[in-house]
Amino acid sequence: MSKIGEGTNPQSQEKRDLLVLLERAQSRSGYLSKRTIAELAESLGLSIGEVYGVASFYSFLSIKPQGRNVIRICKSLPCYLKNAQTIIEGVRKEIGINPGETTADGRFSFELTNCIGACDKAPAMMVNDDVHGDLTPKKISKILQAYK
């Protein structure tokens, strides 16, 4: 997981570290709880709204609880041209949920995302930080097995 900002002394945390701290909290707990946001606001001298505003701006930060693994299928043009729709369908069938949802057992959250920079391997998706390219509906089951 992210090592970014670990050199920052917690005593000297400043407003300028907000995004780094949010990213760290996100990778630690999988999402940004109200408590996390309130604590960060308190320690940095910001309003809750300001922290919430940053947290809700970025699509890789989540203000809702997430599954242990987050699947993000690229929906941008280069992947769309290579039938990303069949991959979306494939994942939907495999884990039984729609984009925007989390499985009941908390194993997966499923999202669609904009271009992930793997267009040469389209269609592509990310599972957590891993990029999987040249996907076919057949490959999905095997890929997802690795994520518990």
Partner: peptide
Amino acid sequence: HNVFAIAYRGFDSKVVVDFD
């Protein structure tokens, strides 16, 4: 004071209070 903040992005952006 600092009651209001801006949340979300683009057309969905909104002036919020605390956790919206």
